[in-house]
Design a protein around this nucleic acid. Sequence first.
DNA 1: GTCTATATATCGATAGAC
DNA 2: GTCTATCGATATATAGAC
Lengths: 222, 222
Amino acid sequence: MSRPPAPSPAAAGCPPPRRPPGAKRLANEARILKAAEEVFATAGFAGARTAAIARRAGVPKANLHYYFGTKEALYRRLLETILEVWLAMGDSIRPEADPAHAFAAYIAAKVEHSRRRPYASKVFANEMLHGAPQLRGYLRRELRRWVAAKAKVIEGWVAAGRMAPVEARHLFFVIWAMTQTYADFDVQVAAVLGRKRLAARDYQAAAALITRLVLRGAGLKG
Amino acid sequence: MSRPPAPSPAAAGCPPPRRPPGAKRLANEARILKAAEEVFATAGFAGARTAAIARRAGVPKANLHYYFGTKEALYRRLLETILEVWLAMGDSIRPEADPAHAFAAYIAAKVEHSRRRPYASKVFANEMLHGAPQLRGYLRRELRRWVAAKAKVIEGWVAAGRMAPVEARHLFFVIWAMTQTYADFDVQVAAVLGRKRLAARDYQAAAALITRLVLRGAGLKG
DNA sequence: GTCTATATATCGATAGAC
DNA sequence: GTCTATCGATATATAGAC
């Protein structure tokens, strides 16, 4: 490992300087981000304690601030990692795909994501709930473009008579809602089902029902 | 947390004509609860400031504590008022009702509630998101019983051949998710639609799509 | 009952030793 | 680069005058 250069006086007001990170630092940052996902999801941004994140990550609190600067900067970094995964889903919705299979695959991926990373979904939900103070730009740019592109695909299917006419953008809103509720509201779902935690069969039942509603609603089944 | 006793009515002499005892207090409590709904929805429990609630309600901060004791007690009182409305919806789902009309009416009521009281929906969503620390008991008792009763109605319709077989409890989970997303995630929906705020026609489009998905999914249409 | 002025606790952030 | 010890800011809650 080459020793990083000393910070120049010109950058004195910009802590902490980004450098080629060492292996230990990378590992620590990953641990902190994982811990932050759990704590921010459970407590919200304001309720999250940097001390709790550091403790869960197994690093001193001062290191957390040394790596990420402020609590808000850590939160933004976490949101970035979550959004990457978010936008990557939905690859199955392409013009040449079969509409029924495309929707089924998208719904399956979303439900699986709710099962595997419920904390990530909750952090995102919390940010939306409180007016998206950090994600205004993302919503108006990346997400809006993403939806516009996917809506065009769906409208192409409709024009070709491959599925029934549908408000494509609203269809996405309700698919997101139905799939993400099994992460965001897992406590409610588990309580009503009388379980301590949601089981694999619960997610399977969810995916089956959601797929059925969407496919029949789009005139693709039955 | 005991509340101070109500003032005893002045019996001696003839006091000047006054409002009924506690009228001002009742009005102030209502103003505080309304303000609390907005602030808790926007900032979450931990992020909410009692000073912000008091300012928005137009009362001194000390009065808020005098009326409700602690921030947490105020929050619990607020949740109670929200749950009352929550459980009252769904009256249309009765054994003798027409399934298609019952679902359509329930969905319309839920979407209308998302439009009229988005803050209430967000407070509830925030509580669920963070593990329902105040509502554990409500979920396992009242809500679970509510769903069990409604599920029985739906299973009766299925047994009578009036609709297709369906996982009744999961159907409620996704109906709640779809309808409430237009309150909880209104920022996201508005951004994708390119609006500053959601308009009446957006809620109409939502209700139409959700109703269509549910009715076709239940074999009640098309 | 109402309100100002303040006590007490907590948390984010950092200085400075190593 | 790492970590301990601590500061300063901010918030809940209340004491006490009116």
